[in-house]
């Protein structure tokens, strides 16, 4: 791995990573693919997020859907774990809660394949500092 020796290096790396997102780089997920993000903090895992993640990875592959599945930390919605965020290409991310196998199946069939939103979306209810 190349070392970052100054601010210019850091900037260059950041730009490279950002262009990877636009194209199909492998470091960070590309914008052209469906992106499924699963909250995987200790509490999420205790609520079954690992099973949900495995199920999603397997089923997306079985159903021939080109998607990137990644893990993330706590989204803050403890009452609704496991929580999953789905970003369809060109769309705003959508967060679903209580994602067991049944709900995960619905997410794939209805939302990912057909763009039909499911009941019980968890909207972003906080301000972000970077936009």
């Amino acid at each position: 791995m190349t070392k970052i020796k100054n601010m210019a290096d850091l900037k260059k790396l950041k730009e490279q990573l950002q262009s990877d997102i636009k194209t199909e780089g492998k470091n960070v997920r590309p914008e052209s693919l469906v992106h499924v993000k699963i909250a995987m903090a200790t509490c999420s895992i205790a609520s079954g997020s690992r099973e949900t993640m495995n199920y999603l990875v397997d089923e997306l592959e079985k159903r021939n859907i080109d998607a990137v599945v990644t893990q993330t930390g706590c989204m803050g919605y403890c009452y609704a774990e496991p929580t999953v965020e789905v970003t369809l290409p060109g769309k705003e991310p959508v967060v679903y809660g209580y994602v067991d196998h049944h709900k995960a199946d619905e997410i794939i069939e209805k939302y990912i394949k057909n763009g039909i939103l499911l009941e019980g979306i968890i909207p972003v209810n906080y301000r972000k500092i970077d936009d």
Partner: peptide, 20 residues
């Protein structure tokens, strides 16, 4: 909105195992 995320700005956003 009532909440504002500073300390939690990346929680639930980034993959914690990927520095990139």
């Amino acid at each position: 909105k009532k909440q504002i995320r500073i300390a939690l700005r990346n929680c639930g956003v980034v993959n914690p195992e990927n520095i990139d």
